[in-house]
Design a protein around this nucleic acid. Structure first.
Length: 643
RNA sequence: AGCGGGGUAGAGCAGUUGGUAGCUCGCAAGGCUCAUAACCUUGAGGUCGCAGGUUCAAGUCCUGUCCCCGCACCCA
């Protein structure tokens, strides 16, 4: 009988810059799931890769004076190195610049166009020829005039391709209802259904003409295929899928069993992707898992704060498997998790050094001490043996249940139950007392055999999560059996094997010392040179004169209800009052602004936000996530012009 | 009344179909010495956000209410 297949993917990583530890979490999580399924006998294909197109990459490359291709080659290389460093067992690594991918995406686009799912339309906008600018309808002045120069605008000349999402809406809704496990975790399902699908899907713009670093539409080359069709298709093009020829891997592995992705791109994977597949007439993936994020303490990671944690640094300090362990064990299933050095070291010391490492060391040390390093034959079962065995043997089925639900952290707990049980067993059986008399030597041998076999089971089970440690332990105890079958029963370890020297597996870390070291390193890595936003192009004096900038006195200021960012201001401007909304509530408390002078653009076209009208724009200075509103040095009559 | 999730020991979290409230770390006491000052046992510590209700019985169901978070509209 053929092995059951299992196709699992991560999202492809965007190659704009080197990923930090949060970005790395996803691939480690996926790796554990992939390895586990391989372990239990499935035929696994694990795909990861890089997303290498887009405007942002084009811009970054330009800034650095290199070609986009050179840039993505470099970053893709880094990403792959990180994956390799972390022992990621991927079977395929796709890059969206791969030739097969590019060609296939073009064919997919063409096919969808030919069958009418993609149509050429107009980007919702109006074009002002003299100004060479696009405007959306809401930006226009009365009578469809350019807000810049006041001249009439033409309905858009910017053409674009659109995907008819609405056509598949009902079908998608039905699919999601019929497959309650399709979107994980559950809460996300409702989010998608209620926020997007049920209110009605908008047609999706799937091409751009504003940049060139992307896959061209082959029958209309000034258009570049915009991110979703390009990026999402990777899951099938990597398997050799094409429109006319599906390929062996594709036939074997599609549909995907799990797409593991960040919660932020759930929408694209649960709506656009299934619809694309429906349009192509291909089956839908079985499960989409939107994992939570890994945050650094309370703070956002930022280069200038010097608190970015990179996987490489963690690995250098703590080792690959400690990093894998932390990510796999400390992240909650559906809520964002955090990583701090304090917690990391604490988990390292208690779980890895004390509980697991020490169990191996002390057991091996006893085999050396009492049996010259040769694991003895077990004899008759004694007290406590049955319980130890049942815990050890029972672990695998518990783990399989948890892993089926993608509960990786819980699976590790199941392994640690065995570790704890084994530690307790030593206390119960007191080998050091048994060693004192020749009469109890046989019992001693049995006890040590049971411990070694328990450790063998533990190490075998660990292989999906901490492959390097798993192998080290198996070597240390001289085990040659580490199969799935062998952990279902007790006794696969062959007596007579030689154990190692009881080397320390995870050396305890001196918390204070290590923290000092890490802090010093972080301080050294903080970038001292200040990076400011690039300057814009020169403008003419008369362009400057078009701006009407004024001083206003804040009479009232309050948060806009339900809004995360907006503050509603009432300004005194001469004898008038004016309402302006400004998205700065993250940075300023309303009460600290009342009575202050602020500077605002008075002739910016009014616009409604969150149901309120905003007549102008309050000026603020912003740098690196910090922001402060502008004010005047001395008091001055409100309404005063800024010149 | 936008949609959804959550508020449980000092911290981080579990709590399935309602029936004595659990886990890990931390803390305290004891045990042990094979081991990485590790390991084992026991203990202290919780009005399960708040207020009502259903029930013989509610963390678990219902209503109201207060916070926190995610998503959406939203930084002009």
């Amino acid at each position: 009988m053929d092995k059951e297949k299992f196709y699992i993917t991560t999202a492809i990583a965007y190659t704009s810059k080197t990923p930090h530890i949060g970005n790395t979490y996803e691939i480690v999580l996926t790796d554990a799931i992939a390895r586990h399924n391989r372990f239990i006998g499935k035929d696994v294909y694990f795909l990861t890769g890089t997303d290498e197109h887009g405007q942002k990459i084009q811009e970054i490359a330009e800034e650095q004076g290199i070609t986009p291709q050179e840039h993505v080659d470099k970053i893709a290389g880094e990403i792959r190195n990180i994956a390799d460093m972390l022992n990621i067992s991927y079977d395929g690594f796709i890059r969206t610049t791969d030739e097969h991918h590019v060609k296939t995406v073009q064919k997919i686009f063409k096919k969808l166009y030919d069958q009418g799912d993609i149509y050429k339309g107009e980007y919702e906008g109006w074009y002002c020829t003299p100004c060479e600018s696009f405007w959306t309808k809401t930006q226009l002045k009365e009578g469809n005039c350019c807000p810049d120069c006041g001249r009439p605008v033409q309905k858009t000349k910017e053409e674009a391709y659109f995907f008819k999402m609405s056509k598949y809406q009902k079908q998608l809704e039905q699919y999601i209802e019929d497959h309650p496990d399709f979107i994980q975790p559950e809460s996300r399902k409702n989010e998608m259904l209620n926020n997007f699908i049920k209110p009605g899907l908008q047609d999706l713009c799937v091409s751009r003409t504003s940049f060139t670093w992307g896959i061209p539409v082959d029958f209309d080359p000034k258009h570049v295929i915009y991110v979703w069709i390009d990026a999402l298709s990777n899951y099938i093009t990597a398997l050799g899928y094409s429109v006319d020829e599906k390929g062996e891997l594709y036939k074997k592995y599609w549909p995907a069993d799990v797409h593991v992705i960040g919660k932020d791109i759930l929408r694209f994977h649960t709506i656009y992707w299934p619809i694309m597949l429906m349009a192509l007439g291909e089956p839908l993936p079985k499960k989409i898992f939107g994992h939570p994020w890994m945050l650094f303490g309370e703070e956002k990671m930022s280069k200038s704060r010097g608190n970015v944690i990179y996987a490489q640094d963690l690995v250098r300090h703590f080792g690959v498997d400690a990093v894998r362990y932390y990510m796999l064990h400390e992240m909650p299933f559906a809520q964002d998790g955090t990583i701090t050095y304090e917690v990391f070291i604490s988990r390292y010391n208690s779980d890895l050094a004390n509980t697991l490492g020490n169990l191996v060391t002390r057991t091996v040390a006893m085999v050396n001490k009492y049996f010259d390093g040769i694991v003895p034959e077990p004899a008759d079962e004694g007290e406590f043996d049955a319980d130890l065995k049942s815990v050890a043997v029972g672990a695998i089925s518990a783990i399989e249940k948890k892993m089926d639900q993608l509960r990786v952290a819980d699976s590790l707990d199941e392994i640690w139950k065995v570790v704890n049980r084994a530690n307790k067993y030593i206390d119960e059986t007191t080998p050091w007392i048994l060693a004192k008399s020749e009469d109890t030597k046989q019992r001693l041998g049995t006890v040590l055999y049971n411990l070694i076999e328990s450790i063998r089971i533990i190490a075998t089970l660990l292989s999906s999560y901490m492959p390097e440690t798993s192998k080290k332990i198996l070597d240390e105890i001289g085990a040659d059996e580490s199969s799935y079958e062998s952990v279902k029963s007790f006794g696969s370890y062959k007596p007579g094997s030689k154990v190692g020297n009881a080397d320390v597996l995870f050396a305890r870390i001196d918390t204070e010392k290590k923290l000092e070291e890490l802090e010093a390193e972080m301080a050294a890595n903080a970038e001292p040179e200040v990076e400011i936003a690039p300057y814009k192009d020169y403008i003419e004096f008369d362009e400057w004169e078009k701006l009407d900038i004024r001083v206003g006195k804040v009479l009232e200021c309050e948060p806009v209800k339900k809004s995360k960012k907006l503050l509603r201001f009432t300004l005194e401007v001469g004898n008038e009052k004016r309402q302006i909304l400004s998205g700065i509530s993250q940075y300023h408390k309303p009460e600290e602004l009342i009575g202050k002078n602020v500077v605002f653009i008075a002739n910016l076209k009014p616009r409604k936000m969150m149901g309120l009208e905003s007549c102008g724009m309050i000026l603020s200075a912003e740098h690196d996530g910090k922001l402060t509103a502008l004010t005047t040095i001395n008091d001055i009559q409100s309404g005063a012009e800024v010149v």
